[in-house]
């Protein structure tokens, strides 16, 4: 079933712009980044092209003392750990809010469903930076939440939540909630609801029907949603920058810093590369676990 050469050339020509763009400006830069992570840094940013060095990776774990001996330094590991924790927390909370929301929408009539999905999609497509800024207005001392709480007599003194990890977590959940609801809704919408009816007919209660029928069938959407929340959250730059203070520095801020004040490109490249590896690992684990038949 090989095509005639004429049509094959046409196909190549059609694919060329996309393939070349992605190869040249996506894949090649990634490879370059991996390469630069094992080069020596130049003094004012940049790299020494002919000087190999694994210092960037050593620096991640150890601190070089004046006498050139290495001592363990957990600062960067802590930042990675915090990023994992905050992104993981955001994923769990968005799932806890997002699944019932998706279920609520999926159980509505067709017309209502479409309107509700539009309501979820609008924040999905609106500027995340601006939406993060809106939380600065809400969370800061003297802001809406602070002043309503003290007006109700529920808090003494200032709220002091802006510029803390809590504020970052709130921002994550808010920003990425639509990323959780939409894929779960998609898998619920495709579901054959007669299966749930059958479960009820066979005497299942609501909880059993949910746990044994709905949840397993919604799994592809849940997994996709978790990835869609976790990946942008763990690499997030401006949400911790704007909502978190110095104590909630995350990987993204650390990376940005290497190209700003720290001027250490190889370290920045190494950090990005490790972040990428983590994300790919997470994807791989999720898809592997998920592709196994249920109950195994």
């Amino acid at each position: 079933m090989s095509l005639d050469p004429h049509r094959r050339w046409r196909r190549r020509l059609l694919l060329a712009p996309t393939t070349l763009t992605l190869l040249l400006f996506m894949l090649l830069p990634m490879l370059l980044m991996a390469w630069m992570s094992v080069l020596a840094p130049d003094t004012y940013g940049g790299v020494r092209w002919h000087e190999w060095s694994v210092d960037a990776y050593v620096q991640f774990l150890y601190e070089r003392d004046l006498d050139d001996s290495l001592t363990l330094n957990s600062d960067y590991l802590q930042i990675f750990g915090r990023s994992f924790l905050l992104a993981g927390f955001a994923t769990v909370v968005t799932l806890l809010i997002g699944f019932p929301t998706a279920l609520y929408i999926a159980l509505k009539e067709e017309k209502t469903r479409q309107r509700l999905i539009l309501l979820i999609s609008i924040p999905f497509w609106t500027n995340l930076l601006v939406r993060t800024y809106a939380w600065m207005l809400l969370l800061r001392n003297g802001g809406l939440i602070d002043s309503s709480l003290s007006a109700l007599g529920l808090s003494q003194g200032a709220l002091d939540v802006l510029y803390t990890p809590t504020a970052v977590a709130i921002g994550f959940v808010y920003s990425f909630l639509p990323f959780m609801v939409l894929p779960i809704y998609t898998s619920l919408e495709k579901m054959d609801w007669r299966l749930v009816e059958a479960a009820f007919d066979l005497g299942a209660n609501r909880w059993q029907a949910l746990r044994r029928v709905i949840l397993p069938l919604a799994m592809p959407g849940i997994v996709a949603g978790c990835l869609l929340v976790f990946i942008p959250a763990i690499g997030s730059y401006y949400i911790p920058e704007l909502l978190g203070g110095g104590k909630s520095l995350m990987i993204g801020n650390l990376i940005q810093n290497q190209f700003g004040t720290a001027r250490n490109w190889p370290f920045g490249a190494a950090l990005s590369f490790m972040l990428l590896a983590l994300v790919l690992l997470a994807m791989w684990v999720y898809t592997r676990r998920f592709q196994r038949p249920p109950g195994e």
Partner: peptide
């Protein structure tokens, strides 16, 4: 392979793409 490459910009964290592009342009 082309499918995988098309998914790449959606999959890779934005900051990684940003760093890789920056280094590429500067290089």
């Amino acid at each position: 392979f082309i499918n995988a490459m098309l998914g790449l910009p959606l999959l890779v964290p934005e900051i990684v793409t940003a760093v890789a592009s920056l280094l590429f342009f500067l290089a």
